[in-house]
Structures are given as structure tokens and as C-alpha cells.
Amino acid sequence: MRISVPKELKNHEDRVALTPAGVHDLAGAGHQVTVESGAGVESGFTDATYEAAGAKIVENQGALWEEAELVVKVKEPTPAEYQFLRPDLTVFAYLHLAADPELARVLMESRTTAISYETVETDSGELPLLAPMSEVAGRLGVQVGAYHLMKPVGGPGVLMGGVPGTPPAKVVVIGGGVAGTGAAMTAAGMGADVTVLDISVPRLRAIAQESNGRIRTAFSSHFEIAELVSQADLVIGSVLVPGDSAPKLVTDAMIAGMKPGSVLVDIAIDQGGCFEHSHPTTHDDPVFKVHDTLFYCVGNMPGAVPRTSTIALTNVSLPYIRQIANNGPVDAARRNPEIQRGFNVFDGKVTHRGVAKALGVKLYGFQEATGTAYLEGNV
């Protein structure tokens, strides 16, 4: 299969979809891998390294897309790349279509096969391609939160762990999944007073056990969120509904009642965010004020640490890319239900329940016997 890896165009998106090791694996299996010149430089991988691994390096972005059967990206296609989408092309990337109806429309109209990293799901409900980036985002969320708690950047002047004789920062993490657990463990490691909210008691129990009781836990409800947020110095939002929009759990009234200078980091922003007033920001301009609080809502947080993120992503994505390349997207989906769950748009139709619900469009199921989309119903 002809596989192309373009340079990412999103603001400060310095990750690349494949490491040279990943290229070497695919090229060794007989696939043609084309990498856009400079695609891996910010992650620490030179063109020469990719060439040595078996890739063809091209300067022309249009040519790279046109010759591809499978485009492997990190982030979703940007408007500048919409012109390259076509029916005989498969795109494999983080798409987050629930928060991007325009991209969903373009993918449907172009009839491009769109497989989304974040909805590839195991039988047990795990999201293997989202997990490493969630780990990165959770830990980064605490780092950027700690930075914005400093007075010179608008914070209240609170040190995360305090010092002897002073109280530590109060950190509230909403959502105890991979990102939330990473955030909570990192904040606790910095000496903060940490509470995690979740609707799963087994998940809360696991966090309490993993942290040896250092992290407090609370069952998530409107009342508990309001109570804890009002006392917080830093709130991390890490709620995930696969494919669907994130629920708005922190309301305007709660935000208005927070301590002046408090910081809110919305890790769920790729899915629309879980705080009222959240909207995507960039690494160039990451924060904005709401009442007396500071919001951080960067949509590609792991792009700030591209070396770590690129290696972590390739580690988990390569087995799926290999299956798609070896069998074609339709046969790969027939053989592996995890890949089939990753299908968001196929033959011009939305095939993921969460995405269809968020966009308010008809849901089509992927029919294994024929590889065509059939109407499953409204959601």
C-alpha cells in the first residue's frame, strides 16, 4: 500500500504520525512510505533518518496526498488539506468530529474513509490509541496549571506543594480515566492536595489504592463538583464520552464562585470541553479569562512535547496501521472489530454512534459481509 505521512499544519503541532522505526517496519513489509520533508524535524527525526529507514522524502504536499492510498496523520485534516480528500483515500488520525461538524461534512461529501484514533476501541472498552496521549495531556495539564498559578502570569501566587508551614494548592480532577489519573498522580507527586471525581466507584477505589490514599476521591455529582470547585486553586477537566461531545460539568455559576486567580485546564477540549465557556486555544495564545479565573484550553497539548508524544503514538498505532496497510481498510475492519469501531465516516456516511449523536445525523452501521454502509437508524 502507498502510505503518506504529511507534515502537520495545526498551530504548534510538532508531532509526526510515524517514527523512523515505524517507517522501517512498514517499508520492510513491502509498503511504500512517503514522508513530507521536515515532517519529523520538531520531533527530533531528520529527513535523512527517514530515508535510511526506507521512506521516500517529498517536498510537494499535494503530490504526497495525491499518490497516497492511506494518509497517516496526528491531527485532523485542516481546511488547507480538504482539497486533497477523495473517495479512494483513507485517513487515519485523531479526528474529534463531534467538535468539528465542518470537517465531518467535508469527509462525507468527499467520501473519504475516515478512521479515528480516539474511537478505536477494544472489546473491554479501552481506547488504546487515545491512552498514551491522554497520559501525556494529564501530566502536562498539571504542569501548565502549576505555571499559571504563579502571580506573574495572572495566578493567585500559589505553589503546588507549598512549603512547611503553608498549605499546598487544592487540585480538583474531574474524570478518573487515563488522563485524569495521570493528572492526579502528577499533582499528588508535586505535593498538592488532590481530589478526583468520577461516576465509577470501582475507578475511584482503584485510584485510592494506586495512590496509597494520598489522593482523595468523591463520587461525581453537580453538588460535589460545585462544592469542590469553589475551594480549588486548579481544576483539571478530563471527562470523555468516546466519539461524543463532552458534557459541560462546570457551569458559569460554579466558575463565578471560584477563588480569584484559580486556573481551569480543559483536557476534554478536543471533544468540545467540559467547562461552560471553554473554547479551543493554541500554544501561541493558550489562556483566557472567565470571571476571575483563567482557562487553558489548548486542543493539542501533547504537541508541546513532540518527541515523547510521537514515540508513544507510534508504539500503539503501528499494529493498526500495519493491519490496514496489509489488508486494506475494509478487510482490516472485517478482521478486527477494534478497527471497525474506529471508522467514523465511510462511503459518505457516519458510522460511529457517538459521532452521529453529537452531529445530529443518521447513523449507519458497517456491514462486514459486503463492506458497504447500511442505515442503522437515527440516534
Rank of each mutant, 00 (worst) to 15 (best):
residue 191 G to R: 00
residue 286 P to F: 08
residue 222 H to Q: 15
residue 270 D to L: 00
residue 214 R to G: 01
residue 204 L to A: 05
residue 282 T to A: 14
residue 205 R to E: 12
residue 268 A to W: 03
residue 202 P to M: 06
residue 238 S to H: 02
residue 260 P to V: 07
residue 226 A to W: 11
residue 209 Q to R: 08
residue 214 R to H: 05
residue 223 F to R: 15
residue 202 P to C: 06
residue 247 P to D: 03
residue 208 A to I: 00
residue 198 D to F: 04
residue 241 V to C: 00
residue 284 D to C: 12
residue 244 D to F: 01
residue 286 P to A: 08
residue 239 V to I: 13
residue 235 V to E: 09
residue 193 D to H: 12
residue 219 F to A: 08
residue 258 M to W: 08
residue 228 L to M: 14
residue 227 E to G: 13
residue 214 R to C: 01
residue 211 S to Y: 05
residue 282 T to P: 11
residue 254 M to L: 09
residue 220 S to E: 14
residue 212 N to R: 10
residue 204 L to R: 06
residue 232 A to G: 10
residue 260 P to M: 08
residue 258 M to V: 11
residue 284 D to H: 15
residue 196 V to L: 05
residue 262 S to Q: 03
residue 285 D to H: 15
residue 260 P to K: 06
residue 231 Q to W: 08
residue 206 A to Y: 06
residue 221 S to A: 12
residue 262 S to M: 02
residue 264 L to A: 00
residue 214 R to W: 03
residue 245 S to R: 14
residue 273 G to A: 09
residue 235 V to R: 08
residue 280 P to Y: 09
residue 245 S to W: 00
residue 264 L to H: 01
residue 269 I to Q: 00
residue 244 D to T: 00
residue 260 P to F: 09
residue 219 F to D: 05
residue 265 V to T: 05
residue 226 A to G: 15
residue 229 V to P: 13
residue 266 D to L: 01
residue 199 I to W: 04
residue 201 V to I: 13
residue 210 E to S: 08
residue 281 T to C: 13
residue 233 D to F: 08
residue 234 L to C: 13
residue 195 T to P: 01
residue 231 Q to F: 06
residue 232 A to V: 09
residue 191 G to C: 00
residue 196 V to H: 02
residue 194 V to N: 05
residue 192 A to D: 03
residue 203 R to P: 00
residue 215 I to T: 07
residue 255 I to F: 02
residue 260 P to L: 09
residue 225 I to R: 15
residue 250 V to I: 14
residue 251 T to W: 04
residue 253 A to M: 10
residue 217 T to M: 10
residue 258 M to A: 11
residue 249 L to P: 02
residue 236 I to Q: 05
residue 234 L to E: 13
residue 223 F to G: 13
residue 223 F to D: 15
residue 201 V to A: 05
residue 197 L to R: 04
residue 239 V to L: 10
residue 251 T to Q: 07
residue 260 P to Y: 06
residue 249 L to H: 05
residue 196 V to A: 07
residue 255 I to R: 13
residue 219 F to I: 14
residue 213 G to T: 04
residue 209 Q to D: 05
residue 244 D to V: 00
residue 268 A to Q: 04
residue 271 Q to V: 07
residue 284 D to R: 14
residue 228 L to W: 12
residue 248 K to Q: 11
residue 235 V to Q: 08
residue 250 V to M: 11
residue 209 Q to N: 00
residue 244 D to E: 07
residue 269 I to L: 02
residue 248 K to R: 13
residue 242 P to R: 04
residue 205 R to T: 10
residue 230 S to I: 11
residue 247 P to H: 05
residue 224 E to R: 15
residue 205 R to M: 10
residue 229 V to H: 12
residue 203 R to K: 09
residue 268 A to M: 06
residue 280 P to E: 12
residue 254 M to F: 10
residue 268 A to Y: 05
residue 220 S to D: 11
residue 192 A to C: 07
residue 266 D to G: 04
